[in-house]
């Protein structure tokens, strides 16, 4: 298998006041180009920690991490992150929020007009051309999240990292954005790693679902390959027996084998 993102024997130890806290250990994962991976597990299992490691926001305590044959030594625009709470800068318009990212990546090589076009294209991709001059506080939560996705995509990243991107949205908006993300990922052939706690979301979107055991010292418990043909349609899958098998496999892992002790 082609290894676009390589995670080898990674472990993460945090220094806390009570001594070292092992969050992750023995993480091995190879991701192919164009693959859609979900990380799922109970709260506190370290799935966001793993995503932050790939993003380069934190560096691993042990092991090696490579993206496109290069070591991950810090954050970089080749690995764009969509945060759970959109993280748009409130004093910039939607256009300027995206343009900030475009300018960072292409500022050295492209003219203003080309970068402007890139920004508009990214906003068009998420269906927000009409809102480019609005400020974040003037648009809905779903729209903010879409601007966040546009910002990430505009950088033409090698890997798109999504940290529970739809967790804060209502169910209808979430479904809508999942469909859009699926379409965008297919159109742009993006490599995606998404943290989620939503079983349906994971099965619907992923090529593989990485299920993590409970922390501390979480490991990858199981990796489930989702062999559903693309494009996938939410409504048709509702009656698909394979879809339900995958779904129960994940549920089984989460609620029988990794049932969290009552908090």
């Amino acid at each position: 298998m082609e290894k676009y993102v390589q995670i080898e024997n990674v472990q993460m130890v945090f220094d806390t006041r009570k001594g070292p806290f092992v969050a992750l250990r023995d993480i091995n994962l190879n991701i192919a180009q164009g693959e859609f991976i979900s990380l799922i597990g109970h709260s506190g299992c370290g799935k966001s920690t793993l995503l932050n490691l790939v993003a380069g926001l934190t560096l691993p305590s042990g092991g090696a991490m490579l993206c496109a044959q290069r070591e991950i030594a810090g954050p970089g625009p080749d690995r764009a992150v969509v945060f759970q709470n959109h993280s748009l800068l409130p004093w910039l318009t939607c256009f300027d929020n995206v343009y900030l990212a475009v300018e960072r990546v292409f500022g050295g090589s492209e003219s203003r007009a080309v970068m402007k076009k890139r920004t508009q294209d990214a906003l068009a991709l998420v269906g927000l051309s009409h809102a480019e001059h609005k400020h974040p506080h003037e648009i809905s939560g779903g729209m903010k999240q879409r601007v966040g996705i546009a910002r990430a995509l505009s950088m033409q990243p090698k890997v798109l990292l999504l940290d529970e991107p739809f967790g804060a949205l209502d169910a209808l908006t979430r479904a809508h954005l999942q469909d859009e993300l699926m379409k965008i990922a297919a159109d742009t052939k993006s490599t995606v790693i998404m943290v989620t706690h939503d079983v349906d979301e994971a099965v619907l979107l992923s090529d593989r679902i990485v299920m993590m055991t409970n922390g501390p010292a979480a490991v990858i418990g199981e990796i489930l390959e989702v062999n559903l043909p693309r494009p996938r349609a939410r409504l048709e899958l509702a009656n698909d027996s394979k879809y339900h098998q995958y779904r129960s496999a994940v549920l089984d892992f989460l609620y029988r084998r990794q049932l969290r002790p009552a908090a």
């Binding site: 993003a55 810090g74 954050p75 970089g76 690995r79 992150v81 945060f83 993280s87 960072r104 950088m155």
Partner: peptide
């Protein structure tokens, strides 16, 4: 974090 991820 935005600043970090974008490497501004």
């Amino acid at each position: 974090n935005v600043a970090k991820v974008l490497n501004l």
